[in-house]
Amino acid sequence: MSGADWLSYSLQDFVMFGPQVFLRLFVRINQDLWPWQLLAVITAIFIPQLILRQNIAARRLAVGLMALAWIVSGYGFLVGYFGPISWPAAWFGWAFVAQGLLLAAAVFAGGIHNSRFSVGEFAVLWLIAVCGLPWLAIADSGQWHAVALFGLAPGTTAAAGALALALMTKTWRWLYLPLLVLWSLFSAALLWVLQTWWLLVTPVATLLLVGAGFWLSPRTAQNPD
């Protein structure tokens, strides 16, 4: 196709499903996984407790749980539920799995720093993300079952997961960054086309939390070992 042909396409032409089908994904995964999402809620609240302890073992455990959240939301939601109606979502699903493995590798390969940083601010931002963002899917769908929990819903997982930047050493941080940005752009375009205006807050919040992750990270953070 020529350049002019490509220009004649709109974002809408690449989205092969409607908002009802998309919002039902959240309802379906919550119905299918009940009551395991309670574990996701407990994990989301437990992570800042670990960070507040200011020791490297707890910090590694927190990042390990974040890694698990990336893998579960990527393979579960994106590959398993979203992938059948959108092939880019399936690709992102595998990228989420890779992101989780990257975080896990950072835990075991010295990618998590032991430097002091503003853990209180980290905890506040984290709780805002994992407690606030899940409601947006409810606001758009009008259904309680659509709650977009950390560890299950990719948007909330990526947004809160962006704060892991504050815990990583410099090299790992730059490896971790690209998917956060790509996912934010992809999901923002998608949610714009679907006109799910409340959920559109999530990719914006993700980018803001990427900035916060960098801002919180100690400039001198190097490999701890």
Binding site: V15, M16, F17, G18, Q20, V21, R24, L25, R28, Y81, F82, P84, I85
Partner: peptide, 13 residues
């Protein structure tokens, strides 16, 4: 069937 029949595995839809 563009958009309308792309409902994945959603049994209700």
């Amino acid at each position: 069937t563009w958009i309308t029949f792309n409902v994945g595995g959603d049994e209700q839809l």
